[in-house]
Protein backbone atom coordinates (compact mmCIF):
# COMPACT_ATOMS: atom_id res chain seq x y z
CA UNK A 1 0.00 0.00 0.00
CA UNK A 2 2.70 2.47 0.92
CA UNK A 3 4.58 1.66 -2.25
CA UNK A 4 1.48 2.39 -4.29
CA UNK A 5 1.11 5.68 -2.47
CA UNK A 6 4.71 6.55 -2.97
CA UNK A 7 4.49 5.88 -6.71
CA UNK A 8 1.44 8.07 -6.90
CA UNK A 9 3.14 10.88 -5.04
CA UNK A 10 6.18 10.73 -7.29
CA UNK A 11 4.05 10.66 -10.44
CA UNK A 12 1.83 13.53 -9.31
CA UNK A 13 4.78 15.63 -8.23
CA UNK A 14 6.33 15.06 -11.64
CA UNK A 15 3.16 16.10 -13.49
CA UNK A 16 2.70 19.15 -11.29
CA UNK A 17 6.25 20.14 -12.08
CA UNK A 18 5.48 19.87 -15.80
CA UNK A 19 2.43 22.09 -15.39
CA UNK A 20 4.41 24.69 -13.52
CA UNK A 21 7.25 24.41 -16.03
CA UNK A 22 4.86 25.28 -18.86
CA UNK A 23 3.86 28.51 -17.17
CA UNK A 24 7.50 29.24 -16.34
CA UNK A 25 8.54 28.82 -19.98
CA UNK A 26 5.90 31.31 -21.04
CA UNK A 27 6.95 33.79 -18.38
CA UNK A 28 10.61 33.27 -19.23
CA UNK A 29 10.05 34.00 -22.91
CA UNK A 30 7.97 37.11 -22.24
CA UNK A 31 10.37 38.36 -19.57
CA UNK A 32 13.41 37.71 -21.75
CA UNK A 33 11.95 39.68 -24.65
CA UNK A 34 10.62 42.49 -22.47
CA UNK A 35 13.85 42.94 -20.49
CA UNK A 36 15.75 43.51 -23.70
CA UNK A 37 13.09 45.25 -25.72
CA UNK A 38 10.50 47.11 -23.74
CA UNK A 39 12.72 50.11 -23.02
CA UNK A 40 13.13 50.49 -26.76
CA UNK A 41 9.42 51.27 -27.11
CA UNK A 42 8.80 55.00 -27.27
CA UNK A 43 6.62 57.35 -29.24
CA UNK A 44 9.50 57.85 -31.59
CA UNK A 45 10.06 54.11 -32.07
CA UNK A 46 6.41 53.52 -32.88
CA UNK A 47 5.76 56.50 -35.10
CA UNK A 48 8.90 57.33 -37.01
CA UNK A 49 10.38 55.85 -40.15
CA UNK A 50 13.30 53.44 -40.04
CA UNK A 51 16.78 54.53 -41.06
CA UNK A 52 19.67 52.43 -42.35
CA UNK A 53 17.51 49.47 -43.47
CA UNK A 54 15.78 49.35 -40.12
CA UNK A 55 18.94 49.35 -38.04
CA UNK A 56 17.95 52.68 -36.55
CA UNK A 57 14.80 54.70 -36.26
CA UNK A 58 11.25 53.48 -35.83
CA UNK A 59 8.92 50.79 -37.04
CA UNK A 60 6.06 52.93 -38.30
CA UNK A 61 5.84 51.42 -41.81
CA UNK A 62 5.64 47.93 -40.33
CA UNK A 63 2.79 49.03 -38.06
CA UNK A 64 0.93 50.55 -41.00
CA UNK A 65 1.64 47.44 -43.07
CA UNK A 66 0.34 45.17 -40.32
CA UNK A 67 -2.87 47.17 -39.96
CA UNK A 68 -3.41 47.24 -43.72
CA UNK A 69 -2.81 43.52 -44.07
CA UNK A 70 -5.02 42.58 -41.12
CA UNK A 71 -7.89 44.76 -42.33
CA UNK A 72 -7.76 43.56 -45.93
CA UNK A 73 -7.48 39.92 -44.94
CA UNK A 74 -10.36 40.11 -42.49
CA UNK A 75 -12.65 42.09 -44.80
CA UNK A 76 -12.31 39.27 -47.31
CA UNK A 77 -12.02 36.29 -44.98
CA UNK A 78 -14.73 37.10 -42.43
CA UNK A 79 -17.72 37.12 -44.81
CA UNK A 80 -16.45 34.03 -46.61
CA UNK A 81 -15.71 32.13 -43.41
CA UNK A 82 -18.93 33.07 -41.65
CA UNK A 83 -20.88 32.42 -44.85
CA UNK A 84 -19.32 28.98 -45.09
CA UNK A 85 -20.23 28.25 -41.48
CA UNK A 86 -23.82 29.38 -42.07
CA UNK A 87 -24.04 27.18 -45.11
CA UNK A 88 -22.66 24.14 -43.28
CA UNK A 89 -24.73 24.63 -40.14
CA UNK A 90 -28.01 26.09 -41.39
CA UNK A 91 -28.53 25.15 -45.00
CA UNK A 92 -27.44 21.56 -45.44
CA UNK A 93 -27.55 18.35 -43.58
CA UNK A 94 -24.58 16.00 -43.64
CA UNK A 95 -23.83 14.76 -47.12
CA UNK A 96 -21.06 14.20 -49.57
CA UNK A 97 -20.62 17.89 -50.35
CA UNK A 98 -20.44 18.99 -46.72
CA UNK A 99 -18.01 16.15 -46.02
CA UNK A 100 -15.84 17.42 -48.83
CA UNK A 101 -16.00 21.01 -47.55
CA UNK A 102 -15.18 19.91 -44.02
CA UNK A 103 -12.31 17.76 -45.23
CA UNK A 104 -10.92 20.67 -47.21
CA UNK A 105 -11.23 22.98 -44.22
CA UNK A 106 -9.34 20.48 -42.06
CA UNK A 107 -6.72 20.06 -44.77
CA UNK A 108 -6.23 23.83 -45.03
CA UNK A 109 -5.64 23.97 -41.29
CA UNK A 110 -2.87 21.38 -41.60
CA UNK A 111 -0.92 22.90 -44.51
CA UNK A 112 2.37 24.50 -43.40
CA UNK A 113 2.45 28.25 -43.82
CA UNK A 114 5.46 28.14 -46.12
CA UNK A 115 3.39 26.06 -48.56
CA UNK A 116 0.73 28.77 -48.48
CA UNK A 117 3.59 31.12 -49.25
CA UNK A 118 4.65 29.05 -52.26
CA UNK A 119 1.10 28.97 -53.53
CA UNK A 120 0.58 32.69 -52.96
CA UNK A 121 3.85 33.39 -54.73
CA UNK A 122 3.04 31.26 -57.79
CA UNK A 123 -0.63 32.27 -58.04
CA UNK A 124 -1.13 35.79 -56.70
CA UNK A 125 2.35 37.28 -57.07
CA UNK A 126 3.37 35.81 -60.43
CA UNK A 127 0.28 34.64 -62.31
CA UNK A 128 -2.13 37.38 -61.21
CA UNK A 129 0.48 40.13 -61.19
CA UNK A 130 -1.56 42.42 -63.47
CA UNK A 131 -4.37 42.36 -60.88
CA UNK A 132 -2.49 42.14 -57.59
CA UNK A 133 0.57 44.19 -58.47
CA UNK A 134 2.97 41.31 -57.74
CA UNK A 135 4.39 41.41 -54.23
CA UNK A 136 1.73 43.44 -52.52
CA UNK A 137 -0.62 43.77 -49.60
CA UNK A 138 -3.36 42.35 -51.81
CA UNK A 139 -1.36 39.23 -52.72
CA UNK A 140 -0.43 38.67 -49.10
CA UNK A 141 -4.02 39.25 -47.93
CA UNK A 142 -5.45 36.76 -50.38
CA UNK A 143 -2.86 34.24 -49.22
CA UNK A 144 -3.75 35.10 -45.63
CA UNK A 145 -7.43 34.51 -46.36
CA UNK A 146 -6.77 30.89 -47.27
CA UNK A 147 -4.80 30.50 -44.04
CA UNK A 148 -7.31 31.92 -41.58
CA UNK A 149 -10.40 30.45 -43.24
CA UNK A 150 -10.37 27.22 -41.16
CA UNK A 151 -10.24 29.14 -37.86
CA UNK A 152 -13.11 31.44 -38.81
CA UNK A 153 -15.26 28.62 -40.21
CA UNK A 154 -14.71 26.40 -37.18
CA UNK A 155 -15.37 29.02 -34.51
CA UNK A 156 -18.36 30.44 -36.37
CA UNK A 157 -19.82 26.95 -36.73
CA UNK A 158 -19.41 26.30 -33.01
CA UNK A 159 -21.06 29.63 -32.23
CA UNK A 160 -24.00 28.86 -34.53
CA UNK A 161 -24.38 25.39 -33.01
CA UNK A 162 -24.60 26.96 -29.56
CA UNK A 163 -27.74 28.87 -30.58
CA UNK A 164 -30.65 26.68 -29.48
CA UNK A 165 -33.00 25.33 -32.14
CA UNK A 166 -35.98 26.65 -30.22
CA UNK A 167 -35.03 30.15 -31.38
CA UNK A 168 -34.97 29.04 -35.02
CA UNK A 169 -38.39 27.42 -34.63
CA UNK A 170 -39.81 30.42 -32.81
CA UNK A 171 -38.72 32.73 -35.57
CA UNK A 172 -39.78 30.52 -38.48
CA UNK A 173 -43.17 29.99 -36.85
CA UNK A 174 -43.68 33.75 -37.05
CA UNK A 175 -43.58 33.47 -40.82
CA UNK A 176 -40.05 34.69 -41.40
CA UNK A 177 -37.83 33.28 -44.11
CA UNK A 178 -34.77 31.26 -43.29
CA UNK A 179 -32.47 34.11 -44.22
CA UNK A 180 -34.48 36.60 -42.14
CA UNK A 181 -34.18 34.24 -39.20
CA UNK A 182 -30.44 33.89 -39.66
CA UNK A 183 -29.80 37.57 -40.28
CA UNK A 184 -32.13 38.94 -37.63
CA UNK A 185 -31.77 36.40 -34.87
CA UNK A 186 -29.22 33.62 -35.24
CA UNK A 187 -26.23 35.70 -36.36
CA UNK A 188 -26.66 38.36 -33.66
CA UNK A 189 -27.00 35.63 -31.04
CA UNK A 190 -23.85 33.91 -32.29
CA UNK A 191 -21.92 37.15 -32.74
CA UNK A 192 -19.64 36.96 -29.67
CA UNK A 193 -18.41 33.54 -30.79
CA UNK A 194 -17.92 34.70 -34.35
CA UNK A 195 -15.98 37.73 -33.15
CA UNK A 196 -13.81 35.46 -30.99
CA UNK A 197 -12.86 33.54 -34.13
CA UNK A 198 -12.14 36.71 -36.04
CA UNK A 199 -9.93 38.04 -33.25
CA UNK A 200 -8.00 34.76 -33.13
CA UNK A 201 -7.53 35.02 -36.89
CA UNK A 202 -6.21 38.55 -36.53
CA UNK A 203 -3.66 37.10 -34.11
CA UNK A 204 -2.71 34.53 -36.71
CA UNK A 205 -2.17 37.18 -39.38
CA UNK A 206 -0.10 39.32 -37.03
CA UNK A 207 2.05 36.33 -36.05
CA UNK A 208 2.46 34.86 -39.51
CA UNK A 209 5.74 35.44 -41.27
CA UNK A 210 6.72 32.63 -43.65
CA UNK A 211 3.79 33.02 -46.04
CA UNK A 212 4.16 36.80 -46.14
CA UNK A 213 7.90 36.56 -46.70
CA UNK A 214 7.04 35.13 -50.11
CA UNK A 215 4.07 37.34 -50.96
CA UNK A 216 4.34 40.74 -49.27
CA UNK A 217 7.69 41.85 -50.63
CA UNK A 218 9.19 43.48 -47.57
CA UNK A 219 9.36 47.12 -48.61
CA UNK A 220 10.29 49.53 -45.85
CA UNK A 221 8.21 52.34 -47.33
CA UNK A 222 4.80 53.22 -46.04
CA UNK A 223 2.36 51.53 -48.44
CA UNK A 224 0.21 53.92 -50.45
CA UNK A 225 -2.28 51.35 -51.73
CA UNK A 226 -3.18 47.66 -51.62
CA UNK A 227 -0.96 47.11 -54.63
CA UNK A 228 2.22 48.18 -52.84
CA UNK A 229 4.62 45.84 -51.16
CA UNK A 230 5.01 46.21 -47.42
CA UNK A 231 6.15 44.42 -44.30
CA UNK A 232 4.41 43.41 -41.13
CA UNK A 233 5.86 43.67 -37.64
CA UNK A 234 6.73 39.95 -37.67
CA UNK A 235 8.39 40.22 -41.03
CA UNK A 236 10.25 43.32 -39.89
CA UNK A 237 11.46 41.51 -36.79
CA UNK A 238 12.76 38.64 -38.91
CA UNK A 239 14.48 40.91 -41.38
CA UNK A 240 16.20 43.17 -38.86
CA UNK A 241 17.29 40.16 -36.79
CA UNK A 242 18.54 37.98 -39.63
CA UNK A 243 19.58 40.42 -42.32
CA UNK A 244 20.29 43.77 -40.72
CA UNK A 245 21.52 42.40 -37.41
CA UNK A 246 19.90 45.19 -35.40
CA UNK A 247 19.03 43.22 -32.30
CA UNK A 248 17.75 46.13 -30.23
CA UNK A 249 15.19 46.93 -32.93
CA UNK A 250 14.34 43.22 -33.14
CA UNK A 251 13.69 42.98 -29.41
CA UNK A 252 11.72 46.23 -29.43
CA UNK A 253 9.56 44.93 -32.26
CA UNK A 254 9.15 41.60 -30.47
CA UNK A 255 7.95 43.45 -27.36
CA UNK A 256 5.35 45.30 -29.44
CA UNK A 257 4.22 41.97 -30.92
CA UNK A 258 3.87 40.34 -27.51
CA UNK A 259 1.82 43.26 -26.21
CA UNK A 260 -0.43 42.99 -29.26
CA UNK A 261 -0.88 39.25 -28.76
CA UNK A 262 -1.66 39.73 -25.07
CA UNK A 263 -4.35 42.28 -25.96
CA UNK A 264 -5.78 39.97 -28.60
CA UNK A 265 -5.95 37.02 -26.21
CA UNK A 266 -7.70 39.10 -23.56
CA UNK A 267 -10.20 40.38 -26.12
CA UNK A 268 -10.87 36.90 -27.45
CA UNK A 269 -11.49 35.38 -24.04
CA UNK A 270 -13.74 38.31 -23.10
CA UNK A 271 -15.96 37.72 -26.12
CA UNK A 272 -15.89 33.99 -25.54
CA UNK A 273 -17.13 34.44 -21.98
CA UNK A 274 -19.92 36.64 -23.27
CA UNK A 275 -21.02 33.90 -25.64
CA UNK A 276 -21.15 31.39 -22.82
CA UNK A 277 -23.07 33.78 -20.59
CA UNK A 278 -25.67 34.45 -23.26
CA UNK A 279 -26.91 30.88 -23.35
CA UNK A 280 -26.61 29.74 -19.80
Amino acid sequence: MSKVNRNQNIAFAFFSALGILTVCILLLIIAYIFVQGITKISFDFLFSNPRKMGAEGGIFPAIVGTIYLVLTTMIIAAPIGVGAAIYLNEYTSRGRITDMIRFATEALAGIPSIVFGLFGFAFFVILLKPITGGWSILSASLTGVTMVLPTIVRTAEEALKAVPDSLREGSLALGTTKWQTIKGLILPAAMPGIITGIILSIGRVIGETAAFLLTLGGSLLIPQSLFDGSRTLSLHLYMVAMETGAMDVAFGTASVLIILILLINFAASWFFRRLIKRFS
Partner: peptide, 9 residues
Protein backbone atom coordinates in the same frame (compact mmCIF):
# COMPACT_ATOMS: atom_id res chain seq x y z
CA UNK B 1 -43.94 26.25 -27.93
CA UNK B 2 -43.64 23.96 -24.96
CA UNK B 3 -40.65 25.79 -23.50
CA UNK B 4 -40.77 29.57 -23.60
CA UNK B 5 -38.29 30.64 -26.29
CA UNK B 6 -37.82 34.38 -25.97
CA UNK B 7 -35.18 35.74 -28.33
CA UNK B 8 -32.01 37.07 -26.67
CA UNK B 9 -33.04 40.71 -27.16
Amino acid sequence: FQKPNPFPM
